[in-house]
Write a protein that binds this DNA or RNA. Sequence first.
DNA 1: AATGAATGAGGGTTCATTCAT
DNA 2: TATGAATGAACCCTCATTCAT
Lengths: 201, 201, 201, 201
Amino acid sequence: MAKIVDHEQRRKEIVEVTAQIIASEGLEAVTTRRIAKASNCSLGILSHYFENKDQIVLGALNWCDERFEARLSEMYGEEFLGLTDFQPLFLTLLPLDELSDTEWRVRCNLVTYSLTHPQLKLLRKEKLDYSYDMAAKFVEKLQSEKEIRLDVDAVSLATLAVDTAFGLCINMLSFPMEERAAQVDRLLSLLSAALSDHIDQ
Amino acid sequence: MAKIVDHEQRRKEIVEVTAQIIASEGLEAVTTRRIAKASNCSLGILSHYFENKDQIVLGALNWCDERFEARLSEMYGEEFLGLTDFQPLFLTLLPLDELSDTEWRVRCNLVTYSLTHPQLKLLRKEKLDYSYDMAAKFVEKLQSEKEIRLDVDAVSLATLAVDTAFGLCINMLSFPMEERAAQVDRLLSLLSAALSDHIDQ
Amino acid sequence: MAKIVDHEQRRKEIVEVTAQIIASEGLEAVTTRRIAKASNCSLGILSHYFENKDQIVLGALNWCDERFEARLSEMYGEEFLGLTDFQPLFLTLLPLDELSDTEWRVRCNLVTYSLTHPQLKLLRKEKLDYSYDMAAKFVEKLQSEKEIRLDVDAVSLATLAVDTAFGLCINMLSFPMEERAAQVDRLLSLLSAALSDHIDQ
Amino acid sequence: MAKIVDHEQRRKEIVEVTAQIIASEGLEAVTTRRIAKASNCSLGILSHYFENKDQIVLGALNWCDERFEARLSEMYGEEFLGLTDFQPLFLTLLPLDELSDTEWRVRCNLVTYSLTHPQLKLLRKEKLDYSYDMAAKFVEKLQSEKEIRLDVDAVSLATLAVDTAFGLCINMLSFPMEERAAQVDRLLSLLSAALSDHIDQ
DNA sequence: AATGAATGAGGGTTCATTCAT
DNA sequence: TATGAATGAACCCTCATTCAT
């Protein structure tokens, strides 16, 4: 009578715990013992679920993005609708609560990690390209609906937006949580002004 | 008489070598043995020049920024002059050659590192605030000289610019060097259009 | 199921081996590598059983005293009975065989060690005070049973006895094993004469 | 014109400084750098005056005994005179002030050290035998002058006295300085009673 | 005579991984 | 399936000693 264990569930738990450790103590603090202890499981069991430590860490990266994507699809379903959707999307991405703060801390670790780990480098590039594409489609849609000015190159603007969002999120991590909302407010008014410029006329 | 050694020079050499290792192999690959080998010196000698490994790594961080600042002051001396100065400044910041590519790889490592190391966290915050301040002064000057539109909050714009630049630089590291110049070109035309908007009219 | 290991037994083995190294080669010769080798185990396994090297060394100190106390309680059970018990007690304390020779060599190392290590200093003081107390009780009992002269202060005599025993044992270590028994014989006759002095009259 | 340096003086200074380090921080804290720094001399100069570190440490041992002997010969010149000399002799031996406290701490370190260092072991044995001899001569003299009881073996009593003194001194180091004098007082009254016993009658 | 830069072996400790149970 | 004992390489750092200056 084998104990029934939901492997996928177990894996997810381990990955989440690992992400928390990365977020709070950094990638260098992640040891197999640490993971096992925090996951309430034995050291050896880890190798039943993951080939090695790197795979757990990789899982932690995906966990972040899955969380973000889950929030998105919960908010919008399949398709983005218009400019009014931008702000909530933006707000759920930004590290404005403990949840996404953790996500961004993990992402920051893994972006750095990806600089020197070929496998992760590839993955990171794919994710980045995907973000650029999504953003470009969104911009194009907005332009086609004349919600934002048309005299800018959609791909360039989308790229810029993604880069800005990334830089903003990472830099925000250097600020206390309570100051971040105000930052975002100012930024949003600036952006909405700039984006709608030629529309308003 | 004792052997004459230029301590400062030796320290700088070690720091540079360390920065190269961080850039090419990541912070986790930085070991005292690795540094010693790459610096063509013995393991023990490192402790003549640095209290411990952390101080070397810290040195590598400062090295990046000092390099950038040296390039800046070489280009402009004391004061930024106007909008025409922006582009070269921007170009020397971006990882468009091996030199600044290395700088950004090191920076990326240390931003991540700073998330969980209180001492570095403080340093990072100081540097970030300094960047925001510099950028704000630059924007204000441009506005006072009517080189850019006046209907935006200088501080917000400066903050946005710094965050964008940071995100752009980090994300660029995921692209092959030869594609980066084109990215920048597109971005610059986008920016110059947006910034000069209300001026042109 | 995990490999079954008697942790306490393993700890004791390691501690004993360490005591032997201290006795034969000195505390400075005690390295984790040396302990591992002599214990027929790997370097890393030591940290399964001990927090760090100091704890092993501390264990070796206690090992000595536990051994002596075990011999005592085996000889007397709970209570010392009278003057006739003194001699065997004395003999099992003295470094007259390899066993207690080792114990005293370890003790000597750790007395020295305790001079500059606050934690050990405290422990040493406690043990010493305990010895003084035990000795005082023994003397008092002997006096109450009129087995030794009454015109001496019990505490002073007990203190003197403990100090003498300690000095004797340490100094004995400088003599070849085969000469020690003779020393003790002479000493015992001297002592018994002195102690029983006023009783005999 | 070579600088005139009193080599012997320099050696003595280094040895004294080393003894102080041993006394206050333990033999394991004695490093060549530490000695050089505390002696206000360079690292390399040490090898001009001493073959290696061990010789410095050996010097520190002798320094202790020389100090004690110097005090003795200052007090008595060549010869011990009688029982009245015993007490001051005893008091200058005991660690009742910072001076002799330091001496005993160093001695304790080096007794332990001698357990495993053949060269020191020999030296220690010689010193010990010398102490026994001196004590025996003193006892014999006292007996010949009927200052102490005659019904004890002089050699045995002398040996006992030396061992006791040694144990007393070492154990005293575990007590705060201010408690030591009282200990000695009680001990002296006990001793004088015991020694003069059969004389007084 | 004197310096202190340089060496590299060896210190304690931590680690991911393996494997007997 | 699950354990955690065991491994040994690699970590950072300190050390006595040497030697070019």
